[in-house]
Design a protein around this nucleic acid. Sequence first.
DNA 1: ATACATACC
DNA 2: CACTGGTATGTAT
Length: 659
Amino acid sequence: MAKSEETSSSSSSRPWESYHTVYTNAKAGMDGVDKEKVQRVVYEMSKGSKYFENEERKEAYMKQKIENMRAQRAKLKPADISHYQRVADKRIAELEATRDLTRTWLHVDMDAFYAAVETLSNPSLKGRPMAVGTMSMISTANYEARKFGVRAAMPGFIACKLCPELIFVPTDFKKYTYYSDLTRKVFQEYDPNFMAASLDEAYLDITNVCKERDITVAEVTEELRQNVYKATGLTCSAGVAPNRLLAKVCSDINKPNGQFLLPNDRAAIMTFISSLPIRKIGGIGKVTEHILKDVFEIKTCEDLLQKSSFFCALFSPSSADFFISVGLGLGGTDAPQVRSRKSMSNERTFSATKDETFFHQKLVELSEMLSADMEKEGLHGRTLTLKLKTASFEVKTRALTLQSSLRSSKDILKHASKLLKAELPVSLRLIGLRMSHFNEDKDGTLSDPTQRTLLNYIKPGDDNTNLVDDEHSDVKDHSESHCYTYTNPSRDPLSELNDNNEQVVEDNGLEDHECKDQLNAVKSSEFDAQGIETHSLEGRNQDQLTMIDFSEKETGSSSSHDKEALIWLEDYKCSLCGVELPPSFLEERQEHADFHLAEKMQMEEESAHAYRNLPLKNRMRQKEAVVGQSKGRKKLKQSPSNGKHIPIDAFFSKASHNL
DNA sequence: ATACATACC
DNA sequence: CACTGGTATGTAT
């Protein structure tokens, strides 16, 4: 008892101080905020919740990591330190040699973008504290609301407590996309190859405009911001620097409606960097900040350079390079590359439940959405990842990599169901699906493996695209991990938003519903055709049946006991899968039994199909593997960084922040 | 290859 | 009244 007494200063008397959220970070518009009050309210509103408990769990994990790191640091002997100091000094010199001060990069950042757009369409919101989002989550808050400590990523019900007058406006991506496009038309006049980082942010290389028009950087920046305002009625902030990493930092300095220019001058950069808190750097978040501060007493970018020996001693080379680069004020200066998408996903949150029928319905919806999204981009994927968030907020992922790539909602559903089944029973609050390992399919040709393989065999251009992209995709710094080059917007302003992650609800309106209904219709007829006897399941709906996966593997592996009937061993354990369900859980037991029954029927029904298809698929796959050769690709990727000419951005590519 | 974590908007 | 959604990437196993 006595030992549980808290001795740490804050925990006992002011418990809210130890609840670390992301809301306390100094953000634009948060100057006159009573941070202690915000912290207290956030704590009071969260305390005791499942969410809070999970945050505590995560906090404990982080503390553990810090302790491990501390121990490692303590193990270093003076001789080690001096050794690693030499290693670090060498690396510093090498990185310094890559410094490129010839480009002028501008980072534009719209001010409170979503909120500003909503105010445009409803001027009565002007001057009143407002947030875009829901009671559950806020996307953006306007500056009036920020005065109360309300900010993005804060749940609405907490924001309400901080600011009772707060007005909530639901998000409307269609609107934001429209205005985003207007801004991009302006950006294009300054840099046709500008990089869109999100709906409201972009990087522009203005080196050429400044030269061609023979005007100062400050003038170009003012003019650009003015033109954005003329085009949209929205204000933005801009930062200019010799690289993107610094430009982003600069755009935050005089926000809102301001700009900050950092000259292309090494001394100026070093001065600027020296007092800069590391948390301002894109890629250094809450956790990394905490670790660097608690383990190495690093707070500013200057500290980063001074403690560089520790990075070389205790971090991966790529992490060390990233931290040292930041300490030197280096960042991406290269021309933007067209990057191919790596993954596509969707997820939904709902009130926590154990209802497997409900889970299945979600999987159906997610599969259909994902399939449709993939089709829009002509993609087929090989790896499917199921994401689950339990009622206690723990996130789990379960992945499956297939022999051949897929896209159809039916295939996705069948594999997703299999993955989910293995986790049951479980109480969930979120389900998500992600597809990755894409093989592009430009012609819109179907997933017919014959065609794919033949194409690849004759003309390996299909994968070639990815190969080139992959090589360059490593050559990006962290703050730009989501940047896409904005390709010609002249015709259909919405079409190329496919290049952008945030194109989300583009055509969500009518079409979407139509689509879903159609898919549902198709789905039901499929089930009918499969001849599943719903009546044998005591009124369970058909959807429940589709929880059962269609996999060949399962058929083979579990065939040994597919004749067995379910018995509750020792009156609580399922004889088929070992799941434990007490006798009092009548509903659950019935559902569970249905599950196995349907599974059995499914397997029997399927075994006939599986045998015909398998050998063929396997053959195709082998060829693909040979042609695709992802291993050769990896080697190619690495060689440039080992060679004589090292592109500066390479040092940001793998930088780690998980310590 | 998989699982988990971190980060960004 | 009860803590998002989409993408990328790094680390560990």
